[in-house]
Lab assay of single mutants.
Amino acid sequence: HNLTITQGKLFFHYNPKLCLSEIHKMEEVSGTKGRQERNDIALKTNGDQASCENELLKFSYIRTSFDKILLRWEPYWPPDFRDLLGFMLFYKEAPYQNVTEFDGQDACGSNSWTVVDIDPPLRSNDPKSQNHPGWLMRGLKPWTQYAIFVKTLVTFSDERRTYGAKSDIIYVQTDATNPSVPLDPISVSNSSSQIILKWKPPSDPNGNITHYLVFWERQAEDSELFELDYCLKGLKLPSRTWSPPFESEDSQKHNQSEYEDSAGECCSCPKTDSQILKELEESSFRKTFEDYLHNVVFVPRKTSSGTGAEDPRPSRKRRSLGDVGNVTVAVPTVAAFPNTSSTSVPTSPEEHRPFEKVVNKESLVISGLRHFTGYRIELQACNQDTPEERCSVAAYVSARTMPEAKADDIVGPVTHEIFENNVVHLMWQEPKEPNGLIVLYEVSYRRYGDEELHLCVSRKHFALERGCRLRGLSPGNYSVRIRATSLAGNGSWTEPTYFYVTDYLDVPSNIA
């Protein structure tokens, strides 16, 4: 807008934040220059609390790290170098490059900038070799853009010569660093050979998330399962459950009422301010606690030095998902009996873990797994792929695949051998790939016309006998059925096997 004052003059007093240069501009645009008398524009009460600059400061050096910015700028000295009290560095987070010096300023003089007072450097006698002032900004957020400017702080001049310097606002972004852990990993099994893994992005990506790394490792069953005799009275049979499938998407929606109208769909109840505040506090606490764990609990591995020492970490090797089922080394339970199943799973520490690289999504279907087997899954978020990966501390989750139908069934015939004193040795093959492992066998036998009897055969007993022995049988026709019990439950009964026990007292003698 054009402003013209045809008559009258300007009068400025007691404006401590208004620089004289701005008042002189007002004289020019209003056409009143030359009308004012000496005392109409006070030299001592206008701009006496402001830094009124008329020179431009330029930054000469900028260096960044993930949490620091090192700045240096060209030296500046007023005509009387004693008038320079120091520099004021202003900075704040700036997602967009549209910041002005006066953003967030209120009537009390406060604003949204963080201000650092910096002492002037030592003055050199040689004007050509003056030290460049600077400042190291610490405690910054990774991968965050900051708006920065600097200006001088000078003393009051009796001659009211307006001098000083100020830089333009520059924008500097800190470097990326390792992201925080992925949030809320959930693993479920939808079949006997697959596990579905879902997660949420890290709360602090500290860069642009480029991919996720998912490692999985087959877990050995508890050692007590191999040692305890679950045929003993009072000892509860062990059981394991597989990871249940995901709930429906509708039930997972946030901010939804727990109660549904019987007449149909209901609208979600909005969260109160107290609920939102509580969630923010919980989120802040979780982030602080995660940072504490990362800094205190997890110790970084030592990389190899120039002395030739090897990095103890196993090298990563990509495998196809079809090879995942046989990740671990199978060892027989008892070496003397080769027909026992290889369900003991000690994992070799030198073995390469299978892994998958996930790009542009937060889910993965891990296939080719062994049925009813526990897996430990390790999830890392990465925001750099080359020249070397920059990934987060791992988040861990466990899951067990679903049982395989008929995996616990005894394959092959049940054979028998009759000894003296009416002892019958029953023999059968253990299931080759049971659900988890076989903890015991149930032997059901009966003599024709009598009630059915049951015998429990422990895992250890089966390994020693290759089956079991029935003792003290009365003469007669017998039928026997056997079924295995694994961590997933009972298998199917075998087809009945028949044998006849004679009275050993009636056996004919070869003595003449």
Rank of each mutant, 00 (worst) to 15 (best):
G374M: 05
V397Y: 14
T272L: 05
T343C: 06
E224N: 09
E247F: 12
T340P: 11
G436Q: 02
I377R: 00
R370S: 13
Y445W: 10
R318W: 14
L228G: 08
E433P: 02
K236M: 08
L369I: 04
T328S: 12
F372T: 03
T415P: 04
I276V: 04
V393T: 04
E388G: 15
K302Q: 14
F337G: 13
S223T: 12
S257Q: 13
D204W: 15
D385W: 13
E420F: 05
E281A: 09
V480L: 06
S251M: 05
L228M: 06
Q252D: 14
C456T: 01
D204Q: 12
D503T: 06
S284D: 10
H416S: 10
I366P: 01
P300S: 10
R286E: 01
W216R: 10
P431N: 09
E279S: 03
F298W: 03
P300Q: 12
E404W: 08
R353D: 15
F499G: 15
H211W: 14
K233M: 12
G476V: 01
G325I: 09
Q384K: 02
E224I: 03
S509R: 11
P312V: 07
V214M: 15
T494P: 02
S305V: 10
Q380R: 03
E279K: 03
F355C: 14
N422C: 06
Y259W: 11
K406T: 10
K317H: 11
V324W: 04
G306S: 12
K278N: 04
R390L: 07
E290R: 02
C266R: 09
G467D: 01
D250V: 08
L426I: 01
D385T: 00
L228F: 13
L232P: 08
G306N: 07
R469A: 06
I209T: 07
E227D: 08
Q252C: 12
V439Q: 12
V397M: 13
E442Q: 04
K361H: 08
P434W: 02
V334P: 12
Q219F: 11
D204H: 02
Y448A: 08
P238T: 05
S262P: 06
N206K: 03
W493E: 03
N435V: 01
G467E: 04
M402Y: 06
P434V: 12
A220L: 11
V324N: 12
H461Q: 09
A395Y: 14
S398T: 11
L235C: 10
K432A: 07
L369D: 01
S257T: 07
R483T: 02
L437Q: 10
I482C: 05
A336T: 10
R481D: 00
E310V: 07
V324M: 07
V358S: 03
Q219K: 13
A484M: 10
E389H: 07
